[in-house]
Amino acid sequence: MNIFRLLGDLAHLASIFVLIHKIQKTRSCRGISFKTQALYALVFVTRYVDLLYHWISLYNFVMKLFFMASSCYILYLMKFRYRPTHDPSIDTFKIEYLLGPSFFLSLIFNYEFSLTEIMWTFSIYLESVAIFPQLFMLQRTGEAETITTHYLAALGIYRALYLPNWIYRYITQDMVDPIAITAGLVQTGLYLDFFYVYFTKVLHGQKFELPA
């Protein structure tokens, strides 16, 4: 464990608390893409099957459990509790375009052709693009509630902080994980536009609005 990964994990944790807080405070999941949330739930379930057979640490165990449980809880909130506030007509990104390529890439580029390794690799590829439906929705509406932008910023910062973590691990442990690094670069890259608006506008007290 190093400081970058710890802060990254904490940002990830924070993003989930902010999202749940947003839904409960505004009693609405307006502006949140159900598709993106469903993809994250799938990412966690496919990546963390190693919980069943591979013990790493208490920290690792608790975090994995939390991410799986909280992502399912968010799906429950969106699909049942606050269902009327979710508008599927603006959440229209076709997730087949993300699921298909992630699956085929994981069959080709993996560390070992086994079920659990392919699931792990699939989850890495899928996570890197799972934010697409959410960003697409943002693009369509052209604006977002401030609290939603805090959620997205924390989520983006999480994967961005994994980049110095990998550099640190390369230097100190000689560890290179090309699959995670490539996907992490893609994932962080997708946030660059958003980060620009967030850091130049939202953090200066302005509303998140995209230029028309």
């Binding site: 591979h54 790493i56 640490s57 975090m63 560390y111 442990q173 560890m175 994980d177």
Partner: peptide, 10 residues
């Protein structure tokens, strides 16, 4: 080379 210790990452 398979970076096995990658599984400690979330």
């Amino acid at each position: 080379k398979d970076p096995q210790n990658r599984h400690d990452e979330l």
